[in-house]
Design a protein around this nucleic acid. Structure first.
Lengths: 99, 99
DNA sequence: ATATCATATTGACAAATATCAATGTATGGA
DNA sequence: TCCATACATTGATATTTGTCAATATGATAT
């Protein structure tokens, strides 16, 4: 249970523009310039969001010449899936002792 | 696809103390005072976090006399499950027209 | 009623975040 | 080499967020 990764993933998802970016990447790789066309944010802002999405391992980037191509990372939601699974179990007993 | 609910849920998950609270509620209802004992935050801060968790529909509160009892909400992760499912489909064509 | 306990709300403040303009860094073409 | 393109980084600013002290609310007991 890597709470740090879970928090980082949740933070990455906690912005409407970033969710929109994820939806724009459904099923296809796109370059940053294409994403920029489809959003109403500046180029530095997009770059900032892509960095967060990559660091949260939700997106993978691939450099090709001048272009950066981004695609959804498989298993990107795993940390939150783990959290959800953990919440459906009773609390784990770390240590127990009866005299 | 309620992006607003997804963002609100993600924001609610994007804090280590709140994740800890969720883990403390695994399998059992607890009152705020019990949660307060197990965390290192002030009472107003806990109250603030509980409000966010309730508004994000991750937690349900039940008032009993002076006490507030909190428990995990079932289906709390649904908005993010929907998002994850959506990301595994190709982008939906909202409208298409060929002449 | 008054006191006490559990919790919520308010107000203030520091830290984190989203944003953009300006600038930097590669890359490819003329 | 020089210029244009695509993207990243920096610096500044406004907004949001997490936190606590102080106070308010509401319930129970004396």
């Amino acid at each position: 249970m890597d709470v740090t990764a879970q928090v980082r993933l949740a933070k990455a998802l906690a912005d409407e523009n970033r969710l929109q970016i994820l939806l724009l990447l459904r099923g296809e790789e796109k370059c940053a310039c294409k994403l920029l066309e489809e959003l109403h944010i500046s180029q530095p802002t997009l770059s900032h969001h892509m960095k967060q999405l990559c660091e949260a391992r939700l997106v993978v980037g691939r450099k090709e010449g001048k272009w950066m191509h981004y695609r959804l990372a498989e298993e990107g939601f795993l940390p939150l899936m783990e959290l959800q699974a953990a919440l459906q179990e009773p609390a784990e007993v770390v240590f127990s002792c009866q005299t």
